[in-house]
Design a protein around this nucleic acid. Structure first.
Lengths: 237, 237
DNA sequence: GAGTGGTCTAGACCACCTG
DNA sequence: AGGTGGTCTAGACCACTCG
């Protein structure tokens, strides 16, 4: 709804990065160039770039420029970038198997987060995905997305295999926050089998609630991690 | 070394918050007041406050002001605030027991992070702490701090029981980043006993490397979490 | 030396909150 | 209505990188 110059620039650059106009390691146009091209002050350009740096899309270097950055060294799965963004451009062989495609259904009983009335009055897209790195299964994710005007969501092919990118590009919804609870647990039979671990092996479990740029729109995940082969890495600054 | 107006204001306000001049929920002086009192533009004040908001010291509300914020809802132990900052002002009964006080020693063999030559040529402060919430043991932390000019560190009493606050106030060193690897594991005997869990109970383990405002100065932790009683929460935005 | 991002000034108008 | 933070302009000087 609200429209700001810095926000428009930010969204433009972001979608250009996601679409591949600017690739990993590329330099964005300089602040002076962006300010003259888009007819705004350098202050405003810097505001946009600052946000993008905070979100991890770019790294700024004094005297050099703004460098496009999408990779992280390891599996940054405790930060709130999506799996594909985090893993995407590294050397790892990544696969992303959808076990249960987006299906519209009712909310499960005893949902792991408390839901608002509006959420409860809609149905929900359920998605179950299995993620592997170098043919090691590392993560099983159950995702629940309330159907607040997501047209034809079940027919979409995820852009770059990424749910986050799809939401930005197709629905102009940005993920802005993530809240999670993490525990070490013993897996149940089915989860152990899917993650290819023994039933006595400890695994990591997380409940997540994602906040978005769309007022009142949240979505939820329950995730299981096999940390035998790959530790879960994360980096904050 | 480098000195900027926004950085000085930032450090002043931060230390005032840590020392209790401004308490949880208080409003900081308005941007206009800060700019006239400290003789700088509002832009510069905003720069300082922006950094502080990013670091989680304050929350800004349009039309209201900048609200001092130190608590998080749950145990935000996967973010990189220190334990004391995260837990500090909530309703929980927190204890922070130092099992092995800061002792100067050599680096362990096969240290969990790769160390630089400068680091290897110094000795290191070792610190072992046990953290409890409402009398449930939740965390065991082994901390390794290279002795790069930390005078009398072994004699310090941690300010507010917090290592992070002590470093800011006594040594002007700020923690600016954190890198970690997380795994679900079975505890060894000693750790199980200290965390008060069964040896078959899964626990969560993390290796951490903290980056600081002091060039080339890092410190390290190996942490074990009991997630039976309290899940590890974290919030990102 | 030319170009880059980092810091900083001195203003302006706006939307939001509270008495 | 008065004060707050949010957005934005139009400049300036600096430290850094690179050819």
């Amino acid at each position: 709804m609200e429209s700001f110059k810095y926000r428009e620039l930010q969204q433009l650059l972001k979608s250009q990065i996601i679409k591949g106009v600017f690739k990993e390691g590329d330099l964005l146009p300089s602040e002076n160039e962006l300010s003259s091209v888009h007819d705004m002050t350098r202050t405003t350009v810097r505001h946009a770039l600052q946000k993008m740096e905070k979100e991890g899309y770019i790294i700024k270097k004094k005297g050099k420029g703004s460098i496009v950055n999408l990779k992280k060294k390891r599996l940054g799965l405790l930060s709130f970038k999506g799996f594909s963004e985090v893993i995407g451009s590294s050397d790892e062989q990544v696969s992303n198997e959808i076990l249960v495609g987006p299906v519209l259904q009712n909310w499960p009983n005893d949902f792991f987060y408390e839901l608002g009335e509006e959420e409860l009055s809609t149905d929900v897209y359920y998605l179950c995905r299995l993620r592997s790195v170098n043919e090691h299964v590392v993560m099983l994710e159950h995702t629940y997305i309330p159907n607040f005007g997501l047209e034809d969501f079940e027919k979409r092919v995820l852009i770059n295999g990424s749910l986050f990118s799809t939401m930005v590009i197709d629905y102009q919804i940005e993920v802005t926050s993530m809240d999670q609870e993490v525990r070490a647990i013993k897996p149940d039979k089915i989860t152990a089998k899917l993650l290819n671990v023994d039933k006595t092996d400890p695994i990591l479990h997380a409940y997540r609630k994602y906040g978005t740029s769309k007022e009142g729109f949240f979505f939820y995940s329950s995730l299981f991690f096999n940390t035998k082969d790959y530790a879960i890495g994360s980096y904050f600054q």
